[in-house]
Simulated assay, not measured.
Amino acid sequence: MKIAVLIAVGLTCVYSTNALASQYKFVAMDSSHETKLCIHAGANQAKKMKVTLRRMGIHERKANINSIRCNDVSPAKFAHEFGANETFNYLNKLSFGKNKVKSSVTIKDVAQNQPKPAKVVYVSAGR
């Protein structure tokens, strides 16, 4: 019984963190690798984001993460802005200086939030 409760709580936590990122629909303004990276970062698609980083050059991973701008902010800040926790944690570890997000703890009542239609976010990237 205790195991079933723990599994239910764990699944609730996973789905509630992904719910915020899924409230947005990201639309690419071009087909560049940089824009794809930004879209995956904002949509909390860590595996796709890492594949895109590999295509851009695995040895330049930190340089890419710190030089790319997603709608005029760093990829880590972009992921943080849209509540994409999984991609944010990965990107923030590799970010430095002004590109890094100084996290703080906030408590949100997710039970009170009603499902809202997805907001469209147009994404462009540059260096």
Rank of each mutant, 00 (worst) to 15 (best):
residue 2 K to V: 09
residue 2 K to Q: 15
residue 4 A to T: 13
residue 4 A to P: 08
residue 7 I to T: 13
residue 10 G to E: 07
residue 11 L to I: 15
residue 13 C to T: 13
residue 13 C to S: 13
residue 15 Y to K: 02
residue 15 Y to A: 02
residue 19 A to P: 00
residue 20 L to M: 07
residue 22 S to N: 07
residue 27 V to R: 14
residue 27 V to E: 08
residue 31 S to R: 11
residue 34 E to A: 14
residue 37 L to Q: 07
residue 41 A to R: 00
residue 44 N to V: 09
residue 44 N to I: 07
residue 45 Q to I: 00
residue 48 K to E: 15
residue 51 V to K: 05
residue 53 L to N: 01
residue 53 L to H: 01
residue 55 R to C: 06
residue 58 I to M: 09
residue 59 H to T: 12
residue 61 R to N: 03
residue 61 R to K: 14
residue 63 A to D: 14
residue 64 N to D: 01
residue 69 R to W: 10
residue 72 D to Q: 06
residue 75 P to C: 08
residue 75 P to I: 06
residue 75 P to K: 10
residue 76 A to P: 01
residue 76 A to N: 06
residue 80 H to K: 10
residue 83 G to D: 01
residue 84 A to T: 00
residue 86 E to P: 00
residue 88 F to N: 08
residue 88 F to D: 04
residue 91 L to P: 05
residue 93 K to L: 12
residue 98 K to M: 02
residue 98 K to C: 00
residue 99 N to V: 06
residue 100 K to M: 08
residue 103 S to L: 06
residue 104 S to I: 07
residue 105 V to E: 08
residue 107 I to T: 10
residue 108 K to Q: 11
residue 108 K to W: 03
residue 109 D to C: 11
residue 111 A to L: 15
residue 112 Q to T: 13
residue 113 N to M: 15
residue 114 Q to A: 14
residue 115 P to W: 12
residue 117 P to S: 13
residue 118 A to M: 13
residue 122 Y to V: 05
residue 123 V to K: 02
residue 123 V to E: 01
residue 124 S to L: 01
residue 125 A to P: 04
residue 127 R to E: 10
